[in-house]
Simulated assay, not measured.
Amino acid sequence: MKQNKFTLRGLIILFMIGMTLITTVLMMFLFANFDIRINEHTTLIKNPYLWLAVFMVIVIVFFMILVLLINKYIFDPIFAMKRAAEHIKSGNLNYPIQYKADNEIGDFCNEFDKMRVRLRDTILEQHEIEKRRKRLIASITHDLRTPLTSIKGYVEAIQDGIVKDQETYEKYLSTIAEKADHLNHLIDDLSVYTKQELGEFTLNLERVNSGKILASYFDHKVDEFKYSNIDLILYKPFISTFINVDPYRFNQILENLIGNAKKYAHTKIEVRTKVVNYHLQIAIQDDGDGIPQDVLASIFDPFFMVNKVKDQKEKGGSGLGLAIVKQLTERHEGKITVESNVDEGTTFVLDFPLDI
């Protein structure tokens, strides 16, 4: 059984009461046993007993004021922090410390409250990370199973001798290669995303010419679009200036945006560049169905899809592409914005500061 004990406040109050009682008893003893009076032989100012009594009264008043000050400026904030700590212990991290005095103790309470807020935010962040982890596992399971199932089906068809002619055989091999590329892209996206979440992602930044790196990327992309029903329209020459980027990750940003536009465009994709306020802007515009305004702000969220079932089944999306684009762009101290109108299309604008 826990023994009862006096609190610090109780001990100080008990001490003050004892001091008051002792002083009072002493004064009564003096007045009762000595002839303390003012007469013709002893003036008021020379009476030593009266001076003693005045001194005792001053001491009592002083200690009473001291107790009040200690109670107000020390014990009140201590009890406020104690109540807050009890709430924190019980899991309530939304209980603020009420003591807000402009002094050292008030500053200490303020820092304690900041610690509470930081602890609350950290726990909420951990819960969010855990939710993302579970969603990531679910997404990996689905996204990897789909192309793997297709590859397995085509391989089994070839092994079982179902494929008889060379044309079908080459078509199956082409499909297998396409699904393998899709798997590789998914794995790369997942790798980038998880490294970003863990804080283990690094960039190899270089000062590069924007015109050259854009021309190099799109020269290869033009060949790919020759066999597509989508026209890739490039407004050349690209702006030639200097930006500080990781060339591989810069191309990955473009690859994700162009690949995304290709999935949803009807007939064309247009690419433009310009410089605004010492920033290089790269606009990628498609003429697809567009994105509804009520979900436009969420498209950069991990695993978000406007139409999840359709996007995964028909478009092969994982919901990570745009999230990765945003992460990579911001790691380059840039930003990405989007404008979209239903039935008109969508425009993504990359914005990178110039290195001049």
Score class of each variant (00 low, 15 high):
residue 12 I to Y: 14
residue 8 L to E: 11
residue 270 E to F: 08
residue 190 L to F: 15
residue 32 A to D: 09
residue 45 I to R: 10
residue 153 G to A: 12
residue 68 L to S: 13
residue 143 D to E: 12
residue 185 H to M: 13
residue 336 I to R: 00
residue 219 D to A: 09
residue 199 G to K: 00
residue 104 E to G: 14
residue 189 D to N: 09
residue 149 T to C: 02
residue 36 I to V: 03
residue 301 D to S: 14
residue 94 N to H: 14
residue 316 G to Y: 03
residue 172 Y to A: 09
residue 93 L to G: 12
residue 322 L to E: 02
residue 347 T to R: 01
residue 21 L to H: 12
residue 323 A to I: 06
residue 329 T to D: 15
residue 30 L to V: 07
residue 154 Y to S: 02
residue 226 K to L: 14
residue 184 N to P: 09
residue 84 A to L: 00
residue 46 K to P: 07
residue 209 N to R: 11
residue 180 A to E: 09
residue 84 A to N: 11
residue 36 I to M: 01
residue 234 L to R: 11
residue 251 N to Y: 01
residue 265 A to Y: 12
residue 294 D to A: 08
residue 272 R to T: 02
residue 355 D to M: 14
residue 55 F to E: 06
residue 125 E to V: 02
residue 300 F to L: 03
residue 302 P to I: 01
residue 284 I to Q: 04
residue 34 F to R: 10
residue 185 H to Q: 06
residue 168 T to S: 15
residue 237 P to F: 00
residue 284 I to Y: 05
residue 318 S to I: 05
residue 224 E to Y: 00
residue 322 L to S: 05
residue 290 G to M: 07
residue 265 A to R: 02
residue 214 L to D: 07
residue 80 A to E: 05
residue 180 A to P: 00
residue 308 K to W: 04
residue 303 F to L: 00
residue 341 N to I: 06
residue 117 V to G: 03
residue 48 P to H: 11
residue 283 A to H: 07
residue 26 L to R: 13
residue 313 K to F: 15
residue 345 G to H: 02
residue 70 I to S: 14
residue 94 N to I: 09
residue 66 L to Q: 12
residue 284 I to K: 01
residue 201 F to C: 02
